[in-house]
Design a binder for these strands. Structure first.
Lengths: 237, 237
DNA sequence: CCGCCATTTCGCTGCGGCCCGAAGCATCCG
DNA sequence: CGGATGCTTCGGGCCGCAGCGAAATGGCGG
């Protein structure tokens, strides 16, 4: 007989996100970077001892994965699904408590990272442009790229082979600030990384972690704006 | 100064789902029906007094909405976003603990309700057929229907005007058992309701709530299988 | 108008968890 | 090899909250 009071998988997973310190850690990790236990302790606002316990629980629950390197232990989100669930929950919360609409400023709405891919208004604009022009075509479980689409994307510096080697080449991820999908999957990841190495996007510094969203914020450089206009016909603000 | 230990919106929302009794109630409400406080108390495995407190918190957190009718109070999920978040979280949990793969039997994988629209293998098949044939075309924030698509869908008894009056005509919702999207939005809702009134789909009874998923399970009738074959060219198992 | 029923409010008890300080390992550096 | 740093484990204190029974509220039927 299974205990009828046993916490189902849903409750167990939700409980992992239900603690303020853990939630802050997860939010910080939505920036896509791997962070050390110490950094996460500071972000969570707890001592190293407490943070260690939290991180162990999150890793045990398969929300995080650890990578030991020397005397540091780097934690990062375990998968795209985890990021999507956090994004979905965060979006829920945002919609019901908009008393201070965007205290983070409009900056975070413009462009930011969602786990490892591009989100925010720019991410949504790219999604609409690519699908609207037929450069991405519906495929099982997501999108595929047309011939012309591959040409255009390659012109922005994206390695399409690497994008195709991901579990999904391209699929939708709901953007919680724009309420429209942006691109996740291998293509989403490559867009973010290629455009950052090319200098089209820059992390909006802000090492002082006064704000959790700060780590996710991106800014489009002038070269990026020009590049996106020329190769994809996108005119970003 | 805002309290740095204040539970952010993410943690607050997650906490609402983190209690076993509340999670069971939410899971039951994923069937799309509105249930009374008493029924939810039984499903949650707690007394009416305890359940009342839980339901008040869920409603206060905007996860549920109440509808008072006589001396009964009917609770249902507040929105599509809430259902999507629960589905995302549930999917996370399912992937990391598949020791007993599908104790609910394969039945629930075949066809079930997700909030108010069709999910499961059938839902995914319909999604693939409609998009693969070009009967649904990518549009801002989801899908639009082509001329031929409208003709085919209308032939199955769907009221397209009512579907179009929803916030989204059609958009993707990730299916946690199939790992592929099925159709949500107005069209998803109309598909489920039209096909059920037409007798193509039937709720798989099971009033004895021994199983939470039971309330969501659907079965495709012989007429339904024939109808889907003739109008959409779908051959469901 | 009175009693029944579904639901909520109140007061209380008990468990689970979050948190920290101190101690124990592991790793890097001089 | 010894000290410093990063992280984890251990032990104990404390608060929050889920749980119940009992009593109050509000609708319904005779």
């Amino acid at each position: 007989m299974s205990d009828p009071t046993a916490p189902g998988p849903l409750a167990a997973t939700a409980a992992l996100m239900a603690d303020p310190a853990r939630a802050r850690m997860l939010a910080a990790l939505m920036g896509g970077q791997a962070l050390t236990a110490g950094e996460l302790a500071r972000i969570g606002g707890v001592t190293a001892a407490t943070a260690s316990g939290h991180l162990a629980r999150l890793a045990d629950g398969a929300l995080l994965v650890v990578h030991a390197q020397g005397r540091h232990r780097y934690y990062r989100l375990a998968s795209e699904e985890v990021a999507a669930a956090i994004e979905a929950l965060g979006g829920l919360a945002a919609r019901l408590a908009p008393p201070r609409p965007w205290k983070h400023g409009e900056a975070a709405r413009g462009a930011r990272l969602c786990w490892n891919h591009l989100a925010g208004r720019l991410g949504v604009t790219v999604h609409q442009r690519l699908t609207g022009q037929g450069w991405l075509t519906p495929a099982a479980g997501g999108w595929d790229a047309s011939i012309e689409g591959r040409r255009r994307l390659a012109a922005t510096g994206i390695d399409l082979d690497r994008a195709a080697s991901a579990r999904h080449f391209a699929c939708d991820c709901m953007d919680w600030s724009e309420r429209r999908p942006h691109l996740a999957g291998g293509l989403g990841r490559e867009m973010a990384s290629a455009w950052m190495t090319r200098g089209w996007l820059r992390r909006a510094a802000a090492e002082g972690d006064g704000d959790i969203l700060a780590r996710r914020r991106l800014s489009l450089t002038p070269e990026g704006a020009r590049g996106l206009h020329e190769s994809l016909g996108i005119d970003a603000a």
